[in-house]
């Protein structure tokens, strides 16, 4: 997959994952599930760098430092949190859709 190729192995990505690993266990679990979901949905920001994902780590680091429970930071409906986060972003599915419309 393209996104993986672009980010895997890169220094930025390793530094990012190191921050994830420093989070408390419950935050790590939620982070990893969020990342998996976002890669599937495929907002275009994912291929533009780690900004989207590292923003989430920023948020989680702050929550963890304040001793909050992870779901009190994201809300119980983590999917809703993710969707809200990428609400204005185009996904690969959107791009494909536009391509289809142009082809007509």
């Amino acid at each position: 997959m393209r996104i993986q190729d672009m980010i895997e192995g890169r220094k930025e990505w390793r530094a990012h994952m190191a921050r994830v690993k420093a989070l408390p266990q419950d935050y790590q679990i939620v982070y990893k599930e969020i990342q998996r979901y976002l890669i599937k949905v495929g907002p275009v920001e994912l291929s533009e760098g780690t900004e989207l994902l590292s923003g989430i780590v920023d948020l989680f680091e702050e929550g963890a430092a304040g001793g909050q429970y992870v779901l009190d930071v994201t809300g119980r409906d983590v999917a809703a949190f993710c969707d809200e986060l990428i609400k204005d972003s185009k996904t690969y599915a959107d791009l494909y859709q536009e391509y289809l419309e142009q082809k007509k």
């Binding site: 679990i29 939620v30 599930e33 998996r36 979901y37 599937k40 779901l71 409906d77 983590v78 999917a79």
Partner: peptide
């Protein structure tokens, strides 16, 4: 489906 998966896994 993915949405449900995400919340269920968590």
């Amino acid at each position: 489906k993915w949405r449900a998966q995400l919340n269920n896994n968590i």
